[in-house]
Amino acid sequence: MAKAYKPTAEQEAVVEAAKGGGDLKVKAYAGAGKTSTLQLVAQQLTGQRGSYLAFNKEIADSARRGFPANVSARTVHSLAYASAPTWLTARINLPSEPPHELAARYGFGPIEVPTISGKNAEVAPFEVGRMIADGLGRFCRSADDTPQPFHIPVDEKIRDDAADWLREQL
């Protein structure tokens, strides 16, 4: 709980407005006492629940220690994450696997492809696995229901027709 101090006239006005109910917007510069003012409001409205949203975990943890039990303090990200359906959050929490092991699991060894310079280049299993993992990341950040070849990133040095073929294979 915050230490007792004498609120400013502006803080008292915010507390009174909050006690009156309805919507309230407090706009002030950094360091002007917004959090302290919200703590005063929370102390006056102990019979009501409140939420304090912070931009990072450190601020949320600090706020949790300074607000009464009727106020939950968390990050904006944690609120959004908790509100997302499990089918979506499951896409974010997939276990990581070293790229070369990922390629081996799917039976990929080195792959030779033509480059735009006219020479052939070998894409090592590590790179193949990384392309698959990066493609999975792109898919997870998309609104698509299933992974698609265009999710797989291919080095721009690889000829376009070979890049299309490689995406289809991966």
Rank of each mutant, 00 (worst) to 15 (best):
K157V: 12
R74C: 10
Y52W: 08
A13G: 08
L94S: 07
R167W: 00
G33R: 05
R105A: 07
I92V: 13
P85W: 03
T8M: 14
E156T: 15
E127H: 07
A54Y: 05
Q148K: 14
K119W: 03
G47S: 13
T37C: 15
A9M: 11
D134H: 01
I59N: 06
A28L: 08
G107V: 01
T35Y: 07
S62K: 12
A80H: 08
A13S: 11
R49F: 08
T46D: 13
A103Q: 00
P68Y: 02
G129K: 00
G118P: 04
R65N: 09
F55R: 06
W87I: 13
A54T: 09
T75F: 07
K3Y: 11
L94Y: 01
A133C: 06
V123K: 01
P149C: 07
G22P: 12
V41N: 09
Q11T: 13
A73H: 03
E156C: 09
T46M: 15
K34Y: 08
R65T: 13
N93C: 12
N93T: 14
E101R: 05
G47A: 12
S117E: 05
A90E: 15
T37A: 13
P95V: 01
F139L: 01
S51Y: 08
S78R: 04
G129A: 02
D145F: 03
D164I: 10
R159V: 04
A69S: 11
M1V: 15
Y52A: 10
I111W: 01
G50D: 06
I158E: 02
V71I: 13
V26N: 09
D161K: 06
Q39L: 12
A163F: 00
A9Q: 15
E16I: 10
G135D: 00
L24Q: 07
P114L: 03
L40E: 05
A73C: 11
H151K: 01
P95R: 00
R130E: 05
L79Y: 11
T37L: 10
E10D: 15
A32I: 10
H77N: 09
Y106S: 03
R105P: 02
L102S: 03
E97T: 06
